[in-house]
């Protein structure tokens, strides 16, 4: 079906009595995303844009993109955007929000940006309880630079800089930044979601919506981690990568709310918060 008659086809269906159930939100621009086919970044972008659209805050939202695969996020969101230096988005967003409290401010970062070079900025923005929404896409690897080890790379997981698998004696344990932030009083809502199937997408969108609503109510920091595949980095097809993620990432990075309304969610085993180990690839 050639591109040009999409609009015509749509009008036909509407005439035939169909109603539109879903279409790409206008808060996303027409720019074609540069992400690899099947990458979770694109899906996550869509969910954030849909939340902004549904809350009617496109004219009040300011996004901050990192350095990493999502460095060009500002081309995809039709909202005012700033490009932060590698790891500095939480500091950038802190000032945007404090100087423009009426704006909705969100940061969008990968695992290298947020949990490696940006660790201090992440922890201190959370500890100050900045009233912003932080989106953290965890795919266990540095994507943009070609698949190197990230803080969240699992023990035994291969990458361009751990070609034989990550070793604890050389690179230490993977960092569960989300659990770590949940222990800080400044965080109000801390959750980990994913976007590899419709059920997960619904929950992820609800979590992102809650994070923005918390910001509207001035509740402090809302932190949403999105587990994602990295097809190029993991050298798998998108569908296989999603499967690998479910089998390996999720047991180590359990999905679900970790902190809600400022309190650790029930059913969260405190031991997990103190980062029990080992975080390893399921052989």
């Amino acid at each position: 079906m050639a591109n040009i008659d999409i609009e015509a086809r749509k009008q036909e269906l509407l005439k035939e009595g169909y109603t539109e159930v879903y279409t790409k939100t206008k808060v996303l621009t027409d720019a074609v995303m540069h992400y690899c086919p099947g990458c979770g970044h694109g899906t996550t972008h869509r969910l954030i844009a849909e939340v902004i659209d549904e809350m009617g805050i496109q004219d009040k939202t300011v996004g901050v993109s990192p350095v990493g695969c999502s460095v060009l996020a500002y081309n995809y969101f039709d909202v005012d955007f700033q490009e932060a230096a590698h790891g500095r988005a939480p500091a950038v967003a802190t000032a945007v929000k404090r100087l423009n409290p009426e704006c909705y401010v969100f940061t969008y970062q990968g695992d290298g940006d947020l949990a490696a070079i940006g660790t201090a900025e992440t922890i201190h923005a959370a500890n100050r309880g900045e009233n912003i929404t932080m989106i953290f896409v965890n795919n266990g690897i540095y994507g943009m630079t070609g698949g190197q080890m990230a803080p969240t790379t699992l023990v035994g997981m291969r990458s361009a800089t751990t070609p034989y698998g990550r070793r604890v004696d050389l690179n230490g344990y993977p960092l569960r930044m989300t659990e770590l932030l949940a222990t800080l009083p400044g965080t109000y809502y801390v959750t980990r979601q994913s976007v590899q199937n419709p059920g997960a997408v619904r929950k992820a969108k609800a979590a992102i919506r809650k994070a923005f609503e918390n910001q509207k109510l001035g509740k402090g920091l809302s932190f949403v981690e999105i587990l994602s595949n990295c097809n190029s980095g993991w050298k798998m097809t998108p569908v296989a990568a999603n499967k690998w993620m479910e089998d390996n990432m999720m047991p180590n990075y359990p999905v679900g709310d970790i902190k809600v309304d400022g309190k650790i969610a029930e059913g969260i085993d405190v031991n997990r918060l103190v980062l029990d180990h080992p975080l390893t690839v399921m052989q």
């Binding site: 749509k10 539109e20 279409t23 939100t25 869509r46 997408v201 619904r202």
Partner: peptide, 12 residues
Amino acid sequence: AMVCPDGVISVY
């Protein structure tokens, strides 16, 4: 449409 990373699918 929900899982499409590039939002290319519209549903009626």
